[in-house]
Amino acid sequence: MRITVIDYKAGNLTSVLKTLRHLGAETVVTDGDLSLVESAERIVLPGVGHFAATQRLDATGLTGAIGAAVERGVPFLGICVGMQWLYAGSTEAPEQPGLGIFPESCTRFAESAEKVPHVGWNSLDVRNGSRLLRGVEPGEYVYFTHSYKGPVTADTAAVTQYIEPFAAAVERGNVMGVQFHPEKSGEAGLKILRNFLAWDAKATAC
């Protein structure tokens, strides 16, 4: 299985690449070579940091290529900012649009007594029918580090509570996103990445 990993110069890809290889995947990285997206069997969009960094995806033409690949049914996984990019946008960079697969926008955690960013291990409340999160035990912990998050909607695959309930994972057909870092979430994270690697377009949701 060959995974095309998108590099938009936001943070370090080492952890994601290392983990995918550990699970037996072959990885190729593109920061602008669209042919690697056009021929992709699977696409992973990692990312940490600021939503504005996704501007580079537009500038390099990767946005269009990824959009077309997703249309063709290529399984896609966005991680952290990579998940947020699947929405229409984020209040972190209001002038920068996302891919818009999900019509809502990401917003910052509300002011409260709790700290922002949300950093550490928090539990997942998995919705029925998620293929990405198949086999994840109720209340399983995964590692988060973020200040912005997506709303809970019909596309939400798992909900996490911090200040308010938010979308820890999102899933519609071949398009998947996780707000947490599966590559840093121990056995639970490895299980989720294995599910992504094993994702079969022809299989039906359980």
Partner: peptide, 9 residues
């Protein structure tokens, strides 16, 4: 360091 690798790093 944060500019290249993110504040979380």
């Amino acid at each position: 360091i944060g500019a290249s690798f993110g504040a979380q790093a």
